[in-house]
Design a protein around this nucleic acid. Structure first.
Lengths: 197, 197, 197, 197
DNA sequence: CATGAATGAGCTTTCATTCAT
DNA sequence: AATGAATGAAAGCTCATTCAT
């Protein structure tokens, strides 16, 4: 990306603009959102936006980059603690909670990705990281014969996709919202899909 | 939607415009596509577009509505022939093939859905139809005790989402493309996720 | 230059826009002139400008290119008919008249050249063409010993510059405006500057 | 002009700003130069500019006014020592050297004059002073019959313009740069253009 | 029906200038 | 005196849509 902001201005104002941008992007949609709307929300003048960001996209990119860092935490811990159903449920729940914590930026991010290859790539890379971790897990399990002999590439993508898709539907389509039960059910499906018994 | 085109004009020309619209929307993206581009592709003048469609969106809606009809075929046949692994694999394969057959309009549709609630609703309704059918299937299976006792709403959404997500990634992100193997793996995951043994 | 206009639109309207552009550029100056001003003068809407020209500069370039063609006539005929004082006077008078005929675009052209290297180049090329013709003339005259032994490069530039400078001052600074007398005096200076007796 | 700077602030800082302004105006052109650029060059903050100058133009005007004083030296000495070819050559050479010594501000000045009547007037007044001195010289020479009977107003303007034009082309268009030879040739042309023998 | 010239609302961006600190 | 964040007027340009021919 690298087209980020001029390093001018006041850090607090910058924060104010970013927060306003996130809110407005989320509420009106990134494409519908006007720089004017953002700055009105921030209580600043239109021109000030350009003290901090090259353009509307640059503000989004900065928001996304911050989220990326936070979201990488998802790819770190989980799946480490064995392949028990329990650890799986905790991992899935963790994912859903992180997703929820960042749902505003995720919504805007995915919206913008539709016409912005750079942003789409960032998302795909994040998903890819998670997926390949799952894939390695499956491969190890197959080697240890505690898992069915499925194509690990396809299986990893399918199961990761199942979770991602559900999270999206749950938070943005207003579907079943009890994270606990969702995590339990998804973990159960996942567990039995792969593991014998 | 109800904002359909006046049924004026020559049917063949209308067809020509629609086909051009589909191609251009697919290639440039719906938002980037200009009415100009569409009509240049159709070999007609810019203004003629508005003889057939109220606006750019109306052409897309018409394309989507046609696809909806065709896509309902997915919701008809499958899952009917028992709950064998085999019928599942055939159903999934059928879904993937239908998805592939309509991939152009699906791509545009999903792209536009991001900022167009009406189009998003149409997709959700289609998915909902499939999902509720799956849900009923699961409920029946549970009743007949041939299936784990999972939350049928969540499970149906998750598994339907898994397939939909995979199809999207496969056709639009250029991932693993051997439909046969994909269908086999997805069916296997699904089958074991739900059915005992 | 080559960044000219879209080949769309009506030829008469294009002409109307160009004429309005020339007038407005001349009156307000190229930099001060707004596309709005031009189109108001043309009695057309703002947006229409962009049917015909990529931007403000493109309209100027088209005006300049037309002038260039006309101005090349200056470089064709003159200085051919011998080196008599009379032919010199006629040539200078011809130059001044042509300059006057195109004074509007010349003023705008020179103004814009200040910050536009492309336009400056076009003017320099035109002047260069005239100058090198004069230079060859001087060289020939020296060879035939009917002219003083001056550096022909410097002399040609100096004399061409003298005429160009005078034309500019005369038409834009409101100085002595009797073309006949000016041409006679300039010719006399030029003639004696070079030719013996 | 009369819009001069308030004589506030520290004289050394003022000097620093002016020097930076001259350099930046020269390098980027007056219109392209940003107050930001000037102050960055001066190693001062943007806002400080307005402690010393009312606006961007005021800084240029101050630079020009200083140059005007220095340039009036051109109008003082020369042409005094008789009408010999030698004194003429020395005068022209002196002009070229003075022009060269101030070439930075002259370039900017002439650039800005294109859209700034006040600055154009200052230049014209300077040129006018030189020209009228030449004119008087010619008139005296005609009275003493050592010079052809030309229109002294036109001749003075033409010859002064020739020198000015050449200086401009020489220093800003990168043409023939040996001042000695140029002065010699220009003096020769001028001398014979006017004086018999 | 087809045409394509004309429209104009609406967005993005720039930067000289101000002014509280 | 110096700072630099904030301002906001102003301009350029795009393109979906209209409508006279």
């Amino acid at each position: 990306m690298g087209e980020n902001a001029p390093s001018k201005g006041n850090a607090k104002t910058r924060e104010r603009v970013l927060q306003a941008a996130l809110d407005v992007f989320f509420e009106k949609g990134f494409f519908e959102a006007r720089v004017d709307d953002v700055m009105a929300r921030a209580g600043l003048s239109h021109g000030t936006f350009y003290t901090y960001f090259k353009n509307k996209r640059a503000a989004l990119v900065e928001l996304v980059e911050r989220a990326v860092e936070a979201l990488y935490e998802i790819t770190e811990e989980p799946w480490r603690r064995g392949h028990s159903y329990l650890s799986l449920e905790q991992s899935i729940r963790g994912f859903l909670e992180t997703y929820q914590r960042h749902y505003k930026i995720i919504k805007v991010w995915k919206e913008a990705s539709v016409t912005d290859a750079g942003l789409a790539y960032l998302w795909d890379r994040l998903v890819g990281k998670i997926t390949s971790r799952i894939q390695k897990n499956i491969e190890a399990s197959i080697r240890r014969s505690i898992c069915r002999k499925v194509n690990p590439v396809i299986a990893a993508r399918a199961l990761a996709g199942m979770i991602e898709h559900y999270a999206y539907a749950m938070f943005f389509k207003g579907e079943s919202a009890d994270i606990g039960e969702v995590a339990r059910t998804l973990a159960e499906l996942w567990y039995h899909a792969l593991y014998v018994q």
